[in-house]
Nucleic acid binder design. Structure first.
Lengths: 250, 250
DNA sequence: GTTCAAGTGTTCAAATAACGCACTTTTATT
DNA sequence: AATAAAAGTGCGTTATTTGAACACTTGAAC
Protein backbone atom coordinates (compact mmCIF):
# COMPACT_ATOMS: atom_id res chain seq x y z
CA UNK A 1 0.00 0.00 0.00
CA UNK A 2 1.82 3.12 -1.14
CA UNK A 3 1.01 6.51 0.18
CA UNK A 4 2.84 8.68 -2.30
CA UNK A 5 1.87 11.91 -0.58
CA UNK A 6 4.25 11.86 2.33
CA UNK A 7 7.60 10.68 3.60
CA UNK A 8 7.03 8.72 6.77
CA UNK A 9 10.70 8.34 7.65
CA UNK A 10 11.05 12.09 7.53
CA UNK A 11 8.01 12.53 9.76
CA UNK A 12 9.51 10.15 12.28
CA UNK A 13 12.74 12.10 12.28
CA UNK A 14 10.84 15.29 12.98
CA UNK A 15 9.11 13.59 15.88
CA UNK A 16 12.53 12.80 17.29
CA UNK A 17 13.53 16.46 17.01
CA UNK A 18 10.34 17.47 18.77
CA UNK A 19 11.32 15.44 21.82
CA UNK A 20 13.71 18.28 22.63
CA UNK A 21 11.07 20.97 22.37
CA UNK A 22 10.19 21.28 26.02
CA UNK A 23 13.70 22.11 27.10
CA UNK A 24 14.55 18.64 28.36
CA UNK A 25 18.25 19.07 28.25
CA UNK A 26 19.68 15.66 27.58
CA UNK A 27 18.10 12.61 26.00
CA UNK A 28 19.68 9.25 25.32
CA UNK A 29 18.74 7.08 22.38
CA UNK A 30 16.83 4.89 24.76
CA UNK A 31 14.89 7.92 26.05
CA UNK A 32 13.99 8.87 22.51
CA UNK A 33 12.96 5.36 21.64
CA UNK A 34 10.60 5.39 24.62
CA UNK A 35 9.27 8.91 23.98
CA UNK A 36 8.52 8.28 20.33
CA UNK A 37 7.61 4.61 20.53
CA UNK A 38 9.99 3.81 17.68
CA UNK A 39 12.22 0.80 17.80
CA UNK A 40 15.60 1.43 19.37
CA UNK A 41 17.34 0.78 16.07
CA UNK A 42 15.08 3.29 14.31
CA UNK A 43 15.62 5.92 16.97
CA UNK A 44 19.33 5.34 16.65
CA UNK A 45 19.40 5.93 12.90
CA UNK A 46 17.38 9.11 13.24
CA UNK A 47 19.55 10.44 16.06
CA UNK A 48 22.71 9.75 14.12
CA UNK A 49 21.28 11.53 11.12
CA UNK A 50 20.39 14.53 13.27
CA UNK A 51 23.89 14.52 14.68
CA UNK A 52 25.48 14.25 11.23
CA UNK A 53 23.33 17.10 9.95
CA UNK A 54 24.34 19.29 12.87
CA UNK A 55 21.05 19.44 14.75
CA UNK A 56 22.12 17.43 17.77
CA UNK A 57 25.33 17.31 19.74
CA UNK A 58 26.29 14.16 21.55
CA UNK A 59 28.24 14.02 24.77
CA UNK A 60 28.83 10.51 26.03
CA UNK A 61 25.47 8.87 25.54
CA UNK A 62 23.17 11.84 25.62
CA UNK A 63 22.05 14.18 22.91
CA UNK A 64 21.22 17.87 23.10
CA UNK A 65 19.97 20.38 20.59
CA UNK A 66 22.65 22.21 18.66
CA UNK A 67 22.40 25.92 17.88
CA UNK A 68 21.65 25.14 14.24
CA UNK A 69 17.98 24.91 15.09
CA UNK A 70 18.14 28.50 16.30
CA UNK A 71 19.54 29.57 12.96
CA UNK A 72 16.60 27.92 11.23
CA UNK A 73 14.22 29.84 13.47
CA UNK A 74 16.18 32.89 12.39
CA UNK A 75 14.89 32.20 8.88
CA UNK A 76 11.35 32.58 10.13
CA UNK A 77 12.18 35.73 12.07
CA UNK A 78 14.10 37.30 9.20
CA UNK A 79 11.41 36.56 6.64
CA UNK A 80 8.92 38.41 8.83
CA UNK A 81 11.28 41.30 9.58
CA UNK A 82 11.20 40.67 13.30
CA UNK A 83 14.69 42.00 13.93
CA UNK A 84 14.43 45.04 11.74
CA UNK A 85 10.96 46.37 12.36
CA UNK A 86 9.18 44.54 15.15
CA UNK A 87 11.92 44.38 17.75
CA UNK A 88 12.53 48.16 17.93
CA UNK A 89 8.84 48.71 18.57
CA UNK A 90 8.91 46.19 21.40
CA UNK A 91 12.03 47.74 22.90
CA UNK A 92 10.34 51.12 22.91
CA UNK A 93 7.24 49.65 24.46
CA UNK A 94 9.15 47.82 27.18
CA UNK A 95 10.84 51.05 28.16
CA UNK A 96 7.60 53.01 28.20
CA UNK A 97 5.95 50.43 30.41
CA UNK A 98 9.11 49.55 32.34
CA UNK A 99 8.15 45.91 31.98
CA UNK A 100 8.24 42.72 30.03
CA UNK A 101 6.50 42.62 26.64
CA UNK A 102 6.25 40.03 23.90
CA UNK A 103 4.73 39.32 20.52
CA UNK A 104 3.28 35.84 20.13
CA UNK A 105 1.60 33.92 17.33
CA UNK A 106 -0.63 30.90 17.54
CA UNK A 107 0.92 27.60 16.53
CA UNK A 108 -1.90 25.08 16.66
CA UNK A 109 -2.90 24.82 20.33
CA UNK A 110 -0.30 27.04 21.88
CA UNK A 111 1.17 30.51 21.75
CA UNK A 112 4.76 30.93 20.58
CA UNK A 113 6.82 33.99 21.44
CA UNK A 114 8.45 35.38 18.34
CA UNK A 115 9.82 38.58 19.88
CA UNK A 116 10.30 39.81 23.38
CA UNK A 117 11.75 42.79 25.20
CA UNK A 118 12.26 43.68 28.83
CA UNK A 119 14.04 46.40 30.74
CA UNK A 120 16.66 45.39 33.25
CA UNK A 121 14.73 47.01 36.06
CA UNK A 122 11.88 44.54 35.50
CA UNK A 123 10.83 43.20 38.86
CA UNK A 124 11.09 39.58 37.85
CA UNK A 125 12.83 37.51 35.24
CA UNK A 126 10.01 35.36 33.97
CA UNK A 127 12.40 33.20 32.04
CA UNK A 128 10.66 33.62 28.72
CA UNK A 129 12.53 34.05 25.50
CA UNK A 130 11.90 33.91 21.80
CA UNK A 131 10.52 30.43 21.19
CA UNK A 132 8.87 30.08 24.59
CA UNK A 133 5.39 28.63 24.45
CA UNK A 134 2.26 29.28 26.48
CA UNK A 135 -0.98 27.32 26.74
CA UNK A 136 -3.94 29.09 25.16
CA UNK A 137 -6.59 28.64 27.84
CA UNK A 138 -5.14 30.11 31.04
CA UNK A 139 -3.20 33.06 29.62
CA UNK A 140 -4.14 36.52 28.38
CA UNK A 141 -2.00 35.92 25.29
CA UNK A 142 -3.68 32.66 24.50
CA UNK A 143 -7.20 33.96 24.98
CA UNK A 144 -6.47 36.96 22.81
CA UNK A 145 -5.15 34.68 20.09
CA UNK A 146 -8.28 32.56 20.29
CA UNK A 147 -10.39 35.70 20.25
CA UNK A 148 -8.87 36.58 16.91
CA UNK A 149 -9.68 33.26 15.27
CA UNK A 150 -12.79 33.11 13.19
CA UNK A 151 -15.60 31.34 15.08
CA UNK A 152 -15.26 28.01 13.30
CA UNK A 153 -11.56 27.72 13.94
CA UNK A 154 -12.08 28.83 17.53
CA UNK A 155 -14.66 26.13 18.14
CA UNK A 156 -12.47 23.46 16.61
CA UNK A 157 -9.58 24.49 18.80
CA UNK A 158 -11.61 24.75 21.97
CA UNK A 159 -12.98 21.28 21.35
CA UNK A 160 -9.44 19.95 21.33
CA UNK A 161 -8.37 21.81 24.46
CA UNK A 162 -8.96 20.94 28.09
CA UNK A 163 -8.03 23.27 30.92
CA UNK A 164 -5.24 22.18 33.23
CA UNK A 165 -5.10 23.28 36.83
CA UNK A 166 -1.79 25.14 36.88
CA UNK A 167 -2.56 27.24 39.96
CA UNK A 168 -5.37 27.31 42.53
CA UNK A 169 -6.95 30.14 40.54
CA UNK A 170 -6.89 28.58 37.08
CA UNK A 171 -10.30 28.85 35.51
CA UNK A 172 -11.39 25.28 34.81
CA UNK A 173 -14.83 25.99 33.42
CA UNK A 174 -14.91 25.93 29.64
CA UNK A 175 -18.11 27.96 29.51
CA UNK A 176 -16.51 30.68 31.55
CA UNK A 177 -13.32 30.58 29.50
CA UNK A 178 -15.35 30.77 26.32
CA UNK A 179 -17.11 33.84 27.69
CA UNK A 180 -13.80 35.50 28.47
CA UNK A 181 -12.62 34.84 24.94
CA UNK A 182 -15.81 36.33 23.52
CA UNK A 183 -15.30 39.32 25.78
CA UNK A 184 -11.71 39.67 24.57
CA UNK A 185 -12.96 39.57 21.03
CA UNK A 186 -15.29 42.50 21.73
CA UNK A 187 -12.91 44.51 23.94
CA UNK A 188 -9.83 43.98 21.82
CA UNK A 189 -7.85 42.93 24.88
CA UNK A 190 -7.62 40.17 27.44
CA UNK A 191 -6.43 40.14 31.02
CA UNK A 192 -5.58 37.15 33.19
CA UNK A 193 -4.16 36.99 36.69
CA UNK A 194 -2.77 34.12 38.75
CA UNK A 195 -4.19 31.54 36.37
CA UNK A 196 -1.00 30.42 34.71
CA UNK A 197 1.47 31.15 37.47
CA UNK A 198 0.64 32.43 40.90
CA UNK A 199 1.79 35.99 41.38
CA UNK A 200 1.89 36.95 37.74
CA UNK A 201 -0.61 38.59 35.43
CA UNK A 202 -0.79 39.19 31.72
CA UNK A 203 -2.46 41.75 29.51
CA UNK A 204 -2.68 41.19 25.77
CA UNK A 205 -4.11 42.94 22.72
CA UNK A 206 -4.69 41.59 19.23
CA UNK A 207 -2.02 42.27 16.67
CA UNK A 208 -3.35 41.09 13.34
CA UNK A 209 -1.98 38.15 11.42
CA UNK A 210 1.51 37.07 10.52
CA UNK A 211 1.44 34.87 7.46
CA UNK A 212 -2.02 33.67 8.37
CA UNK A 213 -1.25 33.10 12.05
CA UNK A 214 -3.10 35.15 14.64
CA UNK A 215 -0.75 37.44 16.56
CA UNK A 216 -1.04 39.15 19.92
CA UNK A 217 1.04 41.66 21.81
CA UNK A 218 1.23 41.19 25.55
CA UNK A 219 2.77 42.30 28.78
CA UNK A 220 3.64 40.12 31.74
CA UNK A 221 3.95 41.55 35.21
CA UNK A 222 3.73 40.80 38.91
CA UNK A 223 0.02 40.37 39.61
CA UNK A 224 -0.20 43.30 42.01
CA UNK A 225 1.24 45.66 39.44
CA UNK A 226 -2.02 46.00 37.53
CA UNK A 227 -4.14 46.66 40.62
CA UNK A 228 -4.10 50.40 40.21
CA UNK A 229 -6.54 51.36 37.49
CA UNK A 230 -4.32 53.99 35.93
CA UNK A 231 -1.45 51.53 35.55
CA UNK A 232 -3.78 49.15 33.78
CA UNK A 233 -5.16 51.86 31.53
CA UNK A 234 -1.74 53.20 30.63
CA UNK A 235 -0.50 49.75 29.77
CA UNK A 236 -3.55 48.95 27.69
CA UNK A 237 -3.26 52.17 25.76
CA UNK A 238 0.44 51.72 25.08
CA UNK A 239 -0.07 48.11 23.96
CA UNK A 240 -2.93 49.09 21.69
CA UNK A 241 -0.96 51.90 20.08
CA UNK A 242 2.08 49.69 19.59
CA UNK A 243 -0.10 46.98 18.06
CA UNK A 244 -1.44 49.45 15.52
CA UNK A 245 2.12 50.40 14.62
CA UNK A 246 3.07 46.75 14.23
CA UNK A 247 0.07 45.84 12.12
CA UNK A 248 1.05 48.54 9.68
CA UNK A 249 4.36 46.76 9.06
CA UNK A 250 3.14 43.24 8.56
CA UNK B 1 24.41 -1.33 -0.42
CA UNK B 2 22.79 -0.48 2.86
CA UNK B 3 24.06 2.10 5.21
CA UNK B 4 22.29 1.19 8.40
CA UNK B 5 23.72 4.12 10.32
CA UNK B 6 21.58 6.85 8.90
CA UNK B 7 18.22 7.72 7.45
CA UNK B 8 18.77 9.30 4.07
CA UNK B 9 15.16 10.30 3.55
CA UNK B 10 15.24 12.18 6.80
CA UNK B 11 18.43 13.95 5.80
CA UNK B 12 16.82 15.01 2.54
CA UNK B 13 13.86 16.41 4.41
CA UNK B 14 16.14 18.44 6.63
CA UNK B 15 17.84 19.83 3.55
CA UNK B 16 14.46 20.99 2.35
CA UNK B 17 13.88 22.78 5.64
CA UNK B 18 17.27 24.41 5.35
CA UNK B 19 16.25 26.06 2.09
CA UNK B 20 14.27 28.48 4.22
CA UNK B 21 17.18 29.34 6.46
CA UNK B 22 18.34 32.48 4.73
CA UNK B 23 15.03 34.25 5.09
CA UNK B 24 13.87 33.59 1.55
CA UNK B 25 10.24 34.17 2.22
CA UNK B 26 8.36 31.98 -0.23
CA UNK B 27 9.45 28.89 -2.07
CA UNK B 28 7.42 26.74 -4.42
CA UNK B 29 7.91 23.01 -4.75
CA UNK B 30 9.66 23.65 -8.03
CA UNK B 31 12.03 26.09 -6.30
CA UNK B 32 12.85 23.51 -3.67
CA UNK B 33 13.38 20.81 -6.26
CA UNK B 34 15.88 23.08 -7.98
CA UNK B 35 17.60 24.21 -4.77
CA UNK B 36 18.08 20.72 -3.42
CA UNK B 37 18.53 18.87 -6.68
CA UNK B 38 15.91 16.31 -5.67
CA UNK B 39 13.32 15.11 -8.10
CA UNK B 40 10.16 17.15 -8.16
CA UNK B 41 8.18 14.22 -6.82
CA UNK B 42 10.61 13.79 -3.94
CA UNK B 43 10.53 17.47 -3.12
CA UNK B 44 6.75 17.29 -3.16
CA UNK B 45 6.58 14.42 -0.67
CA UNK B 46 8.96 16.19 1.68
CA UNK B 47 7.12 19.51 1.44
CA UNK B 48 3.79 17.86 2.11
CA UNK B 49 5.24 16.11 5.13
CA UNK B 50 6.61 19.39 6.45
CA UNK B 51 3.23 20.98 5.94
CA UNK B 52 1.41 18.12 7.64
CA UNK B 53 3.79 18.27 10.60
CA UNK B 54 3.23 22.00 10.97
CA UNK B 55 6.63 23.27 9.88
CA UNK B 56 5.52 24.90 6.65
CA UNK B 57 2.46 26.90 5.73
CA UNK B 58 1.23 26.90 2.17
CA UNK B 59 -0.49 29.80 0.46
CA UNK B 60 -1.42 29.09 -3.13
CA UNK B 61 1.68 27.37 -4.45
CA UNK B 62 4.31 28.76 -2.17
CA UNK B 63 5.54 27.57 1.19
CA UNK B 64 6.80 29.54 4.15
CA UNK B 65 8.19 28.59 7.51
CA UNK B 66 5.62 28.22 10.27
CA UNK B 67 6.24 29.46 13.80
CA UNK B 68 6.65 25.88 15.01
CA UNK B 69 10.32 26.04 14.12
CA UNK B 70 10.68 28.95 16.53
CA UNK B 71 9.19 26.85 19.31
CA UNK B 72 11.80 24.18 18.61
CA UNK B 73 14.53 26.78 18.89
CA UNK B 74 12.88 27.68 22.19
CA UNK B 75 13.83 24.21 23.36
CA UNK B 76 17.47 25.05 22.80
CA UNK B 77 17.15 28.42 24.49
CA UNK B 78 15.25 27.03 27.46
CA UNK B 79 17.64 24.15 28.01
CA UNK B 80 20.47 26.66 28.26
CA UNK B 81 18.53 29.06 30.47
CA UNK B 82 18.79 31.90 27.98
CA UNK B 83 15.54 33.53 29.01
CA UNK B 84 15.97 33.22 32.71
CA UNK B 85 19.63 34.01 33.30
CA UNK B 86 21.38 35.20 30.16
CA UNK B 87 18.82 37.66 28.83
CA UNK B 88 18.67 39.84 31.97
CA UNK B 89 22.45 40.23 31.86
CA UNK B 90 22.25 41.33 28.24
CA UNK B 91 19.45 43.77 28.98
CA UNK B 92 21.53 45.33 31.72
CA UNK B 93 24.54 45.50 29.45
CA UNK B 94 22.61 47.10 26.60
CA UNK B 95 21.39 49.81 28.93
CA UNK B 96 24.82 50.45 30.36
CA UNK B 97 26.30 50.80 26.90
CA UNK B 98 23.21 52.36 25.33
CA UNK B 99 23.70 50.04 22.39
CA UNK B 100 23.10 46.77 20.70
CA UNK B 101 24.59 43.64 22.29
CA UNK B 102 24.33 39.94 21.53
CA UNK B 103 25.52 36.53 22.60
CA UNK B 104 26.51 34.22 19.77
CA UNK B 105 27.79 30.67 19.50
CA UNK B 106 29.65 29.02 16.70
CA UNK B 107 27.65 26.64 14.53
CA UNK B 108 30.16 25.10 12.14
CA UNK B 109 31.35 27.96 9.91
CA UNK B 110 29.15 30.72 11.15
CA UNK B 111 28.09 32.59 14.25
CA UNK B 112 24.51 32.25 15.45
CA UNK B 113 22.89 34.81 17.73
CA UNK B 114 21.23 33.08 20.65
CA UNK B 115 20.36 36.22 22.63
CA UNK B 116 20.27 39.87 21.87
CA UNK B 117 19.30 43.13 23.54
CA UNK B 118 19.15 46.73 22.42
CA UNK B 119 17.85 49.97 23.83
CA UNK B 120 15.29 51.89 21.86
CA UNK B 121 17.59 54.87 21.61
CA UNK B 122 20.06 52.79 19.63
CA UNK B 123 21.14 54.81 16.64
CA UNK B 124 20.41 52.10 14.10
CA UNK B 125 18.27 49.03 13.84
CA UNK B 126 20.74 46.52 12.51
CA UNK B 127 17.99 44.05 11.84
CA UNK B 128 19.54 41.26 13.85
CA UNK B 129 17.52 38.95 16.03
CA UNK B 130 17.87 35.67 17.81
CA UNK B 131 18.78 33.19 15.08
CA UNK B 132 20.60 35.69 12.88
CA UNK B 133 23.87 34.40 11.50
CA UNK B 134 27.17 36.09 10.78
CA UNK B 135 30.19 34.91 8.78
CA UNK B 136 33.22 34.12 10.91
CA UNK B 137 35.98 35.82 8.95
CA UNK B 138 34.95 39.49 8.60
CA UNK B 139 33.26 40.05 11.97
CA UNK B 140 34.52 40.66 15.50
CA UNK B 141 32.11 38.00 16.77
CA UNK B 142 33.34 35.44 14.30
CA UNK B 143 37.00 36.09 14.92
CA UNK B 144 36.51 35.90 18.65
CA UNK B 145 34.74 32.57 18.24
CA UNK B 146 37.61 31.27 16.13
CA UNK B 147 40.07 32.61 18.67
CA UNK B 148 38.43 30.43 21.29
CA UNK B 149 38.73 27.21 19.29
CA UNK B 150 41.68 24.99 20.04
CA UNK B 151 44.36 25.35 17.37
CA UNK B 152 43.50 22.16 15.49
CA UNK B 153 39.85 23.00 15.16
CA UNK B 154 40.73 26.54 14.17
CA UNK B 155 43.02 25.36 11.40
CA UNK B 156 40.43 22.93 10.09
CA UNK B 157 37.82 25.67 9.99
CA UNK B 158 40.08 28.26 8.41
CA UNK B 159 40.99 25.76 5.71
CA UNK B 160 37.32 25.48 4.82
CA UNK B 161 36.69 29.23 4.80
CA UNK B 162 37.41 31.78 2.11
CA UNK B 163 36.97 35.50 2.66
CA UNK B 164 34.23 37.23 0.71
CA UNK B 165 34.46 40.87 -0.26
CA UNK B 166 31.42 42.26 1.52
CA UNK B 167 32.63 45.86 1.64
CA UNK B 168 35.60 47.73 0.15
CA UNK B 169 37.37 47.33 3.50
CA UNK B 170 36.89 43.60 3.99
CA UNK B 171 40.21 42.00 4.81
CA UNK B 172 40.81 39.41 2.08
CA UNK B 173 44.22 38.20 3.20
CA UNK B 174 44.02 34.96 5.14
CA UNK B 175 47.42 35.50 6.71
CA UNK B 176 46.30 38.84 8.04
CA UNK B 177 42.98 37.44 9.26
CA UNK B 178 44.80 34.60 10.97
CA UNK B 179 47.00 37.12 12.72
CA UNK B 180 43.98 39.06 13.94
CA UNK B 181 42.50 35.87 15.34
CA UNK B 182 45.73 35.06 17.13
CA UNK B 183 45.73 38.57 18.48
CA UNK B 184 42.14 38.16 19.67
CA UNK B 185 43.12 34.96 21.38
CA UNK B 186 45.83 36.80 23.32
CA UNK B 187 43.87 39.97 24.02
CA UNK B 188 40.61 38.29 24.90
CA UNK B 189 38.72 40.58 22.53
CA UNK B 190 38.33 41.34 18.85
CA UNK B 191 37.39 44.51 17.03
CA UNK B 192 36.33 44.89 13.41
CA UNK B 193 35.16 47.95 11.52
CA UNK B 194 33.58 48.39 8.10
CA UNK B 195 34.53 44.87 7.06
CA UNK B 196 31.11 43.26 7.20
CA UNK B 197 28.95 46.27 6.53
CA UNK B 198 30.14 49.74 5.76
CA UNK B 199 29.47 52.13 8.60
CA UNK B 200 29.24 49.56 11.35
CA UNK B 201 31.74 48.15 13.78
CA UNK B 202 31.74 45.28 16.23
CA UNK B 203 33.56 44.55 19.45
CA UNK B 204 33.45 41.05 20.94
CA UNK B 205 34.86 39.20 23.92
CA UNK B 206 35.05 35.48 24.58
CA UNK B 207 32.33 33.99 26.69
CA UNK B 208 33.28 30.39 27.35
CA UNK B 209 31.43 27.42 25.96
CA UNK B 210 27.79 26.51 25.75
CA UNK B 211 27.40 22.77 25.51
CA UNK B 212 30.74 22.51 23.77
CA UNK B 213 30.14 25.42 21.40
CA UNK B 214 32.40 28.45 21.65
CA UNK B 215 30.46 31.55 22.73
CA UNK B 216 31.18 35.24 22.40
CA UNK B 217 29.55 38.39 23.66
CA UNK B 218 29.56 41.34 21.32
CA UNK B 219 28.39 44.84 20.65
CA UNK B 220 27.47 46.32 17.30
CA UNK B 221 27.56 50.04 16.70
CA UNK B 222 27.95 52.75 14.10
CA UNK B 223 31.62 52.68 13.12
CA UNK B 224 32.34 56.19 14.34
CA UNK B 225 31.03 55.42 17.79
CA UNK B 226 34.17 53.58 18.85
CA UNK B 227 36.56 56.28 17.65
CA UNK B 228 36.93 57.87 21.05
CA UNK B 229 39.30 55.77 23.11
CA UNK B 230 37.29 56.07 26.31
CA UNK B 231 34.13 54.83 24.63
CA UNK B 232 36.02 51.82 23.38
CA UNK B 233 37.57 51.15 26.77
CA UNK B 234 34.29 51.50 28.62
CA UNK B 235 32.57 49.13 26.23
CA UNK B 236 35.37 46.58 26.44
CA UNK B 237 35.33 46.65 30.19
CA UNK B 238 31.56 46.28 30.42
CA UNK B 239 31.57 43.41 27.94
CA UNK B 240 34.37 41.66 29.76
CA UNK B 241 32.63 41.97 33.12
CA UNK B 242 29.34 40.78 31.72
CA UNK B 243 31.07 37.83 30.09
CA UNK B 244 32.53 36.79 33.42
CA UNK B 245 29.06 36.94 34.94
CA UNK B 246 27.65 34.85 32.11
CA UNK B 247 30.37 32.22 32.26
CA UNK B 248 29.55 31.67 35.90
CA UNK B 249 26.03 30.62 34.91
CA UNK B 250 26.79 28.24 32.09
C1' DG C 1 36.20 -7.65 41.85
C1' DT C 2 31.67 -9.57 40.43
C1' DT C 3 27.15 -9.10 39.21
C1' DC C 4 23.52 -7.01 37.19
C1' DA C 5 20.74 -3.80 34.62
C1' DA C 6 20.48 -0.49 31.24
C1' DG C 7 22.21 1.34 27.30
C1' DT C 8 24.57 0.84 22.87
C1' DG C 9 26.51 -1.24 18.52
C1' DT C 10 25.99 -4.57 14.49
C1' DT C 11 24.08 -7.70 11.32
C1' DC C 12 20.86 -9.38 7.88
C1' DA C 13 16.75 -11.11 5.41
C1' DA C 14 12.10 -9.48 4.81
C1' DA C 15 9.00 -5.81 4.20
C1' DT C 16 7.83 -1.66 2.43
C1' DA C 17 8.63 3.04 1.68
C1' DA C 18 10.75 6.00 -1.50
C1' DC C 19 11.95 6.83 -6.24
C1' DG C 20 11.26 8.94 -10.66
C1' DC C 21 9.33 8.55 -15.06
C1' DA C 22 5.43 9.49 -17.94
C1' DC C 23 1.11 11.45 -18.11
C1' DT C 24 -2.66 14.65 -16.80
C1' DT C 25 -4.42 18.75 -14.82
C1' DT C 26 -4.19 23.36 -13.07
C1' DT C 27 -2.73 28.09 -13.12
C1' DA C 28 -0.69 32.25 -14.76
C1' DT C 29 0.91 34.91 -18.74
C1' DT C 30 0.85 36.82 -23.31
C1' DA D 1 -6.73 31.11 -27.34
C1' DA D 2 -2.15 29.61 -26.95
C1' DT D 3 1.73 28.74 -24.21
C1' DA D 4 4.74 27.68 -20.47
C1' DA D 5 5.46 26.62 -15.85
C1' DA D 6 3.96 24.41 -11.89
C1' DA D 7 1.44 20.93 -9.50
C1' DG D 8 -0.92 16.45 -9.03
C1' DT D 9 -1.25 11.23 -10.10
C1' DG D 10 -0.24 6.28 -10.87
C1' DC D 11 2.74 2.59 -10.81
C1' DG D 12 6.61 -0.72 -11.64
C1' DT D 13 11.20 -0.72 -9.94
C1' DT D 14 14.58 -0.07 -6.60
C1' DA D 15 16.81 0.50 -2.59
C1' DT D 16 16.02 2.04 2.04
C1' DT D 17 14.06 1.08 6.19
C1' DT D 18 12.82 -2.20 9.52
C1' DG D 19 13.24 -5.01 13.80
C1' DA D 20 14.65 -9.17 15.88
C1' DA D 21 18.67 -11.50 17.52
C1' DC D 22 23.00 -11.32 19.44
C1' DA D 23 27.26 -9.08 21.23
C1' DC D 24 29.49 -5.41 23.58
C1' DT D 25 30.05 -1.42 26.95
C1' DT D 26 29.18 1.15 30.91
C1' DG D 27 28.27 2.27 35.60
C1' DA D 28 26.18 1.28 39.94
C1' DA D 29 25.56 -1.84 43.87
C1' DC D 30 27.26 -4.98 46.89
Amino acid sequence: MHDTTGASTFAKGLHVLECFQDGSADLTMADISRLTGYDRATARRLCLTLEAEGYLIRTNRSFRLAPKIVALAGGYLASHHIGKFIQPVLNQLAETLAGDVALAVRDDTRAVYIARSAVSTARLSFGFSVGSTLPLLPTAMGRMLLAQCDPDRRDTLLARLAPQKLTPETDMDMTSIRARIDQASQDGFSFAKNEFETGTAGLAVGCGWINGCEAALGMTEAAAHFDKADVFDTALEALTKAAIGLKRQM
